[in-house]
Design a protein around this nucleic acid. Structure first.
Lengths: 176, 176
DNA sequence: CATTCCATGTAACTCGTTACATGATTAG
DNA sequence: CTAATCATGTAACGAGTTACATGGAATG
């Protein structure tokens, strides 16, 4: 049950319409919780139904955009969720599965696929590093956005892991 | 569409009944692709329907266990899947989301939760290391199970990342 | 013979994905 | 005026989860 809370967080950071949310779920928030516009509209409906958000009364009418804001009940629901106990999800990765399958049925073409993934992860890593340079310059490291920085670092370290591991895996595949 | 291929891989490694598969999905295979017995039985039905596996003719009747084995068509389907292009899934992690939410609504109790996760990941890491020591002793590193070892190393490195990052996150949370 | 465990399933639901629909605004 | 794009949705499906059902085998 994370999507509604992802949306509540996003709306607290800034009230938005469905499309704006969709855009934001392609960038910052989407870096660790992605969602399509279909999911978002469905969830906005449920959150409004549940009395956790409401459409903000509009400046006379700009097209048909519907801007939402979080109600006090929504903020409380989010705070409660943040404090819950939730066990980490076990790893679920198709690439690892494919490597294991390759050990049984052979691996033609897998090296190319690993290289491709390596490049994709490298690109993502570069993007995160760029964001870090822009948003968290070294000399005000202990600011109020310590938490955001730590979240970004998780992304950086995860992508670093993938690039390093994929290089290892390629080396191992070479020796087959 | 990974579950059917996970099952095909498992059955190629060793023909099994539904319950045996369930057990194996709690251990080795489950370390990167978990599944419940309900999922497994449903998928076994589909795979049999599709002509990719079949129940192996039974030694007169041992209870009601139904053992399955992979047919040639199943092996081909698996080999094809291994060679496909599949983009890596973006990160989707509720804990990172909760940290971001905590930056907005506050974080009472989050430190305790991070510590708890740290301990869980540490335990998982220890388990992987134990498996590595048992199944991949140093001096025959270049054997035929190079690929299995590389998969296990992914698990080890991922858990290592989490333990290190959680320590950082706890430190950051402390300074709030 | 009652209970527990083994073994295989059904049913109902939620979440995420893919394909499609519809009306309003803007650009050429 | 037409086409593109903005913005909000609906519908159908598949994968995963949770709760429950059923019957045989083994144990006291």
């Amino acid at each position: 049950m994370s999507l509604p809370h992802a949306i509540l967080t996003a709306l607290l950071e800034r009230p938005s319409s469905g499309l704006e949310l969709t855009r934001r779920f392609d960038r910052s928030i989407g870096f660790f919780w992605s969602a399509t516009h279909q999911q978002i509209y469905r969830e906005l409906g449920r959150l409004e139904q549940a009395g956790l958000i409401r459409p903000v009364p509009q400046p006379p009418s700009r097209g048909q955009r519907k801007e939402y804001e979080v109600l006090p009940a929504g903020r409380e629901a989010l705070a409660g969720w943040v404090g819950e106990q939730q066990d980490p999800k076990p790893i679920r990765d198709a690439l690892l599965l494919r490597l294991r399958a390759a050990a049984v049925v052979g691996a033609p073409g897998l090296a190319a696929e690993l290289s491709r993934h390596l490049e994709l992860h490298q690109r993502q890593l570069d993007e995160y590093r760029e964001i870090e340079r822009r948003d968290f310059p070294a000399e005000r490291a202990a600011g109020e956005n310590r938490l955001q920085h730590v979240v970004l670092q998780a992304g950086i370290q995860l992508e670093t892991f993938w690039t390093e591991w994929l290089a290892q895996a390629l080396a191992a595949l070479d020796e087959e």
